[in-house]
Design a binder for these strands. Structure first.
Length: 845
RNA sequence: GCCGGCAUGGCGGAAUGGUAGACGCACCGGACUUAAAAUCCGUUGGGACCUAGUCCUGUGGGGGUUCGAGUCCCCCUGCCGGUACCA
């Protein structure tokens, strides 16, 4: 087309050609230990991307950001002599596929396959060095067979409190094994989303709405499969210490797990046999407890409520049951009702009223609190509202701090045997006292709840479980995988009954047994995919022992922050269980985690269809080529930083690649590119050699540090240096191509091949497979250096001296400079600081 | 409120405690061209003056440490992300 913009270099011919060659030759095939040709002498590197959910929208520009980063490091490590594992796959079960299928009337398998095909083509067009022989797909029966198998490991194990580790359920000494399994069935109040027709995990509910779609979520009691992740709460926090993750993500997980140390205290109820147990982080304030509060849904409420209060209590219970957690949270004033009952404070036998209020939640601690209004903000507010007594028991250390509502540490007062003790001491003493009297105990409490693991959906892994006589049991491993039934109508039923119930024949397992109807949540498949990559074709085991030992841990995991508390927590949990059971050799899966920053639209706003600021990576590849897209996304700024898109910026890096291309190539009048006659097999000039070796050094170091933006800047400096040269030394330019290769693999391979055609003395082979160049420190030093001369810290002059000039020579030289003399005229020189090779600072006053 | 992060030219950003602004974008000037595009070369933080130069000023604000601070310490402000009655 005549209107088509003239290409600065023929990327559109180059890129498909190299992609085809890499694919045909399986250039990036990675061998496992034991395979022919495997080189055990090399170190290993496992670079992992968060595998995508293959949505119908295709890749957005955020995908190639993280993927290019791991691709560069993988290519760099490969050239540096590592065995590199760099795989890709599909997280393809899940709600969006099913929603889309229902909307369009197509089977989710059909749309999923089509989307995967599209994603694959898009990724291949970007030139990533994935070993496609290791591709995994969570919806493949050969994959989810092992997801089901891992579920059975959870089902068939328990955590021994003595060791804190999972072990086979057969070792459980108690009578009721079902009460300790890591996968268990419980009646729980769950997040039911009528619109999606399924229950959701706490983590999938955001502000009372479903994370997917933003539909209202209600609380309702249901029988559900749960995973006992709370048994791992302690280790999920403490073992974060050993991994190299961003502090923010660690903090997010710690906060989500929500560990707090305190004590449980039992209060007798006056005139009743039951006891109310509370959790408190401030047992030292026990003397200040002037009332108690139960969550409205607390099981003791009905039993202790007095006849006079019953109507009010029941009305309040009904009212708060209708409120979502969100409504409870935004309530501006506290509400509550007196039950008519009184509890007895164990430290002083004081009778204190028992209330119910929705500021206490059943889901945390014991669902009951002792209220110490003097030293708790919420209790303080409640007590003022309902005119309950406020009793000081902590004296703030600062005299001008009001004790009312003071929540910090201080000194115990009005607290009997605790008086005078600092808060920390008082906590210890009261805990010991409670334990001695059998009234309470030290306790660590967590916010983390068990993981609700069942979904009432079609497009997920069926459970390898059948029900018989009202009891569940595991299917034998030999019956895996349990395939989902082929359902034409897989719509949610609109009731909590899962759509699998419609497959009547499938449901009937035997005359007396029926299959579990729920499916697993989308997180199941992504909890262990990084393990399967190590050995994706293994039919006998979820991952071969030797492969797992060799490749794990993941050395670098790059992905978005959105998975900070979902995927990353669940995957760590499963990993630890499998580790405890002896199936794995590491306790943590991801040694180093890096979050790529969000790419904003050109307007600095988050990209969204409604804003119309979405950039389609395909369009960029079409106009500038994959190498330009890769390079630009890395050049925008630090990987972890949020940064706006700039199409001008893409043009900038595209020009850089074209400039690099023209170092080697010239275009004749017909528009054909031939090797430049300026190329010659001559030694580089000293300056060129220096810049080249600086570039080798900087690009290598920046690759290791994931500082890709500065590596690219240095490569630009290098190209600029050679652009002005009349004669272009082939050896130096070939070396440069090695440095460029991980970043812009297509154009660098092309140029190397063309260069070698005329200069066969260059090493034979693909640039991708030839070793990374080494820099020589002796080329980095200049004969002369510029010394900055400062007077009182301000630059006044500069002088060029031979490299290595000693301080003893520099000082008098500096003091003798005309400009220095002007600036120290009338002053006394007090001191001269000399940093050889850098500066002289004259201190005078 | 709490937790985490960030703050540098017109813009994206760069700077082991040692010449702030590398590199790119944008802008401006020049070369090439009939012309334009492309390309190549060059200028560009702000300000002042006696304008081949010299000086002042400058990394959100205020203090401090240091011969020397964008960088280290303390306080404050603003923005972004997460989380929120968690007892």
């Amino acid at each position: 087309m005549s209107s088509e913009k003239r290409k600065q270099y023929p990327f559109d011919e180059i890129e498909p050609r190299w992609q085809a060659r890499w694919e045909n030759e399986k250039t990036f095939r990675t061998l496992n230990p034991g395979e022919a040709g495997f080189d055990a002498s090399r170190p290993k590197f496992y670079a992992l991307d968060m595998f995508p959910y293959p949505s119908g929208d295709g890749l957005h520009v955020g995908h190639p950001e993280g993927y290019t980063a791991t691709d560069i490091i993988s290519r760099f490590k490969r050239k540096a002599g590592f065995n590199v594992l760099h795989p890709m796959g599909w997280d393809a079960f899940g709600l969006p596929a099913e929603q889309y299928a229902i909307k369009t009337g197509q089977h989710p398998r059909t749309t999923t396959e089509r989307n995967i095909k599209n994603f694959t083509e898009q990724l291949k067009r970007l030139g990533f060095c994935y070993d496609w022989d290791r591709e995994v797909n969570t919806t493949d029966p050969g994959y989810f067979k092992w997801t089901q198998w891992i579920f059975l490991q959870l089902y068939n194990s328990w955590v021994n409190p003595a060791t804190g580790k999972a072990q086979p359920i057969s070792t459980y000494p108690g009578a009721d094994a079902d009460s300790v399994r890591l996968a268990y069935v419980a009646d729980a109040t769950v997040n039911w989303c009528p619109e999606l027709g399924t229950v959701l995990a706490n983590e999938e509910v955001v502000d009372g709405k479903s994370e997917v779609g933003g539909f209202p979520v209600e609380r309702r009691p249901m029988r559900q499969w749960m995973l006992r992740i709370t048994d791992y709460a302690e280790r999920l926090i403490s073992e974060l210490d050993g991994v190299n993750w961003p502090e923010g993500i660690k903090a997010l997980q710690r906060n989500w797990i929500g560990r707090s140390e305190g004590a449980e205290v039992s209060f007798a109820i006056a005139g009743a046999a039951e006891k109310i147990t509370v959790f408190t982080t401030r047992p030292d304030t026990l003397f200040g407890a002037t009332y108690m509060v139960l969550a409205p849904e607390h099981p003791l409420v009905a039993g202790i409520t007095s006849a006079e209060q019953r109507a009010a209590v029941e009305a309040y219970q009904k009212e708060s049951a209708a409120k979502s957690d969100l409504d409870r949270g935004v309530a501006k004033t506290k509400s509550g009702v007196f039950t008519g009952a009184h509890a007895v404070n164990p430290v002083n036998d004081a009778k204190i009223p028992v209330w119910i209020a929705d500021y206490v939640m059943m889901g945390y601690g014991t669902g009951a609190i002792m209220a110490v209004p003097a030293h708790d903000e919420r209790d303080f507010e409640f007590a003022k509202q309902f005119d309950l007594p406020i009793l000081q028991v902590v004296q703030p250390s600062s005299a001008d701090t009001d004790w009312q509502g003071f929540c910090g540490d201080g000194t115990a007062v009005h607290s009997g045997f605790l008086d005078g003790l600092p808060t920390a001491e008082a906590k210890k003493k009261i805990a010991a006292w409670l334990e001695e009297k059998g009234l309470g105990a030290r306790r660590v409490n967590f916010k983390l709840r068990d993981w609700l693991f069942a979904r009432q959906r079609y497009w997920g892994e069926p459970f390898p479980i059948v029900w018989e006589n009202g009891k569940h049991r595991a299917l034998p491993e030999s019956e895996l995988p349990v395939l989902p039934p082929d359902l034409a109508d897989f719509k949610p039923t609109g009731t909590p009954e899962p759509p699998l119930a419609k497959a009547v024949d499938w449901v009937r397992y035997s005359d007396t047994a029926t299959r579990e109807l729920n499916t697993m949540p989308q997180w199941a498949g992504s909890c262990w995919y990084y393990l399967r990559y190590c050995d994706p074709k293994n039919a006998a085991r979820f991952v071969g022992t030797e492969a797992e030992q060799y490749w794990m841990n993941v050395d670098l995991y790059v992905g978005g922050t959105e998975h900070a508390v979902l995927h990353l927590l669940y995957a760590r949990f499963w990993h630890k269980v499998l580790f405890d059971l002896g199936h794995l050799t590491t306790g943590e899966p991801f040694q180093r985690l890096v979050n790529q920053g969000l790419i904003l639209g050109e307007d600095g706003q988050k990209m969204s269809k409604s804003r119309g600021n979405v950039i389609n990576p395909d369009a960029i590849v079409g106009e500038y080529g994959a190498d330009s897209l890769r390079l630009f996304e890395m050049f925008m700024g630090p990987l972890e930083q949020v940064k706006p898109w700039s199409t001008k910026g893409v043009e900038g890096v595209h020009r850089f690649l074209a400039r690099a291309w023209r170092l080697f190539m010239v275009e004749d009048q017909e528009g054909a590119w031939t090797l430049s006659p300026q190329l010659a097999d001559v030694p580089p000039q000293k300056k060129q050699l220096k810049v080249l070796h600086e570039t080798i050094k900087k690009v290598g170091e920046d690759c290791e540090a994931l500082s890709f933006n500065t590596a690219i800047a240095q490569m630009m400096v290098c190209v600029n240096e050679f652009t002005g040269a009349e004669v272009r030394p082939v050896s130096a330019l070939a070396t440069f191509l090695h440095l460029l290769n991980p970043y812009a693999p297509h154009v660098s391979e092309e140029l190397y091949e063309r260069l070698r055609a005329k200069f066969p003395q260059l090493p034979e082979g693909l640039l991708s497979e030839l070793p990374w160049p080494e820099f020589d420190a002796k080329n980095l030093v200049d004969d002369e250096v510029e010394i900055v001369i400062q007077v009182n810290g301000k630059v006044r002059d500069k002088v060029t001296v031979p490299n290595g000039t000693a301080a003893a020579t520099l000082e008098p030289m500096a003091l003798d400079r005309e400009k220095v003399k002007e600036h120290i005229a009338g002053l006394t020189v007090r001191k001269v600081i000399t940093v050889p090779g850098r500066l002289v600072n004259i201190v005078a006053n």
